[in-house]
């Protein structure tokens, strides 16, 4: 398990591994928003929390097809299927590696980008908290989507069509936390809901992903 995690992390860090691509995409989205809605900082500060969540979500989405596609192409997945590690464990590790290489950098960069969008100072802690609790769910759900579409050539667009509706509850509660925090309101209820969704997906979705992957490998 640990070996698989280290292998995935190393592959992601290497040149061409796509590490930092999501981060760059996140930056571009953040920079493009003022161009499209205007530089008015009052407007920007009201929508900053939502934009940051949306940017993080899209950056996450962008890197989903890398989770399993390369391993599928070179046959690593077939070997992993024969390994003593159960498939549920494999997909959980894959999701964890995806979160460590995409979700975690996004969280670390989010305060900086929030500065660009003039997020009110009360909003920083809830933003980080919501991203910290929410992005694992994005990775786990994304792994499910990647497992569904792994056998399909050029399945990238289909992957987004399948995964985006599944992201709706996470996005709603996540950006609700960030928005309420930025407005200086109490945000504990949506935060608890968000944590519930994340824990639920981590606990249950690997079984679905593993079942789907077994069908695809069959």
């Amino acid at each position: 398990m640990k070996a698989l995690l280290i292998r995935d992390l190393r592959l992601a860090m290497r040149a061409g591994g796509g590490f930092g691509l999501g981060l760059a995409f996140f930056l571009i989205v953040t920079v493009l928003v003022p161009f499209s809605v205007g530089p008015d900082s009052a407007l920007l500060s009201t929508i900053a929390a939502g934009i940051l969540w949306l940017g993080a979500l899209l950056a996450c989405l962008l890197s989903l097809d890398r989770i399993l596609a390369l391993d599928w192409e070179d046959g690593t997945l077939d070997l992993l299927a024969c390994a003593p590690l159960p498939m549920e464990g494999t997909v959980s590790i894959k999701a964890l590696a995806h979160w460590l290489t995409t979700g975690l950098p996004l969280i670390l960069a989010a305060p900086l980008f929030a500065l660009l969008l003039s997020l009110p100072s009360a909003g920083y802690i809830p933003l980080i908290l919501s991203l910290l609790l929410g992005t694992p769910a994005l990775s786990v759900i994304g792994t499910f989507g990647a497992a569904l579409t792994v056998g399909i050539k050029r399945g990238g667009l289909l992957l987004s069509l399948l995964v985006l509706p599944l992201y709706v509850p996470t996005l709603i509660f996540g950006s609700e936390v960030a928005r309420r925090g930025a407005d200086g309101l109490s945000y504990s209820t949506p935060l608890i809901m968000l944590a519930g969704i994340t824990l639920g997906t981590i606990a249950l979705l690997p079984f679905a992903s593993a079942a789907v992957l077994r069908v695809n490998i069959r």
């Binding site: 499910f144 569904l148 056998g151 399948l162 509706p165 599944l166 709706v168 509850p169 709603i172 509660f173 609700e176 949506p190 809901m193 969704i197 979705l205 679905a208 079942a211 789907v212 069908v215 695809n216 069959r218």
Partner: peptide
């Protein structure tokens, strides 16, 4: 394969559809 994958998607989708239903209420 298509039948297997879509039926699992239907199960997972149902759970998330119900979740979304209550999430948008909130």
């Amino acid at each position: 394969t298509a039948a297997d994958l879509t039926s699992i998607l239907c199960l997972v989708g149902s759970v998330f559809a119900v979740l979304s239903r209550y999430a948008v209420n909130f």
